[in-house]
Simulated assay, not measured.
Amino acid sequence: MLTSFIASAAFGLIFNVPKRTLPHCGAVGMAGWLVYTIGMRLSAGAIAATLIAAVTVTVISQLFAKQYKTPIIVFSVAGIIPLVPGGLAYDAMRNVVVDNYGLAVQFAVKAFMISGAIAIGLVFSEVINRIIRGSGKHAAHRHAGRTDRR
């Protein structure tokens, strides 16, 4: 957990996020990694665990963005770093170099699927957030537009 916190906060530092948000970037990454770890221990599989963790990262990022009046990307980009399958991509390329194409394809497909799960998780959470916020606005708009005709 500590490593994921440090990695996320350090990545925020690399991307020049506001210094006051660095601990929050670390917390988002740590929360995402915690959810991923729990998912893996519950035998959800790497792809499902990554999807759930990416949704978690986005939800927490949305909350922090609203609370600190900062763009959501400040938290979501730094927070998603622990979930990126860099080791799998490296293993895929290493196996290409040593002419072990069968294993390289297996690693590459898994890295691609995990990357897709990250993307879907980020988008899915944002869509749900927009639906929830949108339905509240529409309901308020409908009620505001009514006049009492008796």
Results as ranks from 00 to 15, higher is better:
I60G: 02
A117I: 02
S61D: 04
T37R: 01
A89C: 12
I81W: 06
L83Y: 05
Q67S: 14
F11D: 09
F5L: 01
R41P: 00
V109A: 15
G102N: 09
L22Y: 04
R150K: 02
A78R: 04
G86P: 01
S115K: 03
L13V: 12
F64C: 11
T56I: 03
H143K: 12
A78L: 10
A53V: 07
R142V: 14
A48P: 00
P85Q: 04
L83W: 02
F124N: 02
V97T: 09
I6N: 01
V123K: 00
E126W: 06
L122I: 13
G86W: 06
R133C: 13
T58A: 12
V97P: 04
V109P: 09
K69W: 10
K19C: 07
G45I: 02
V17I: 15
I6K: 01
M1A: 10
S8G: 14
I120A: 07
Y68T: 14
C25E: 02
S61P: 08
I72W: 10
M113I: 05
I47G: 01
I114R: 10
A65F: 12
I52C: 08
S43N: 10
P18R: 11
Q62H: 15
H143W: 13
D91P: 02
A108L: 06
L88V: 06
L63G: 13
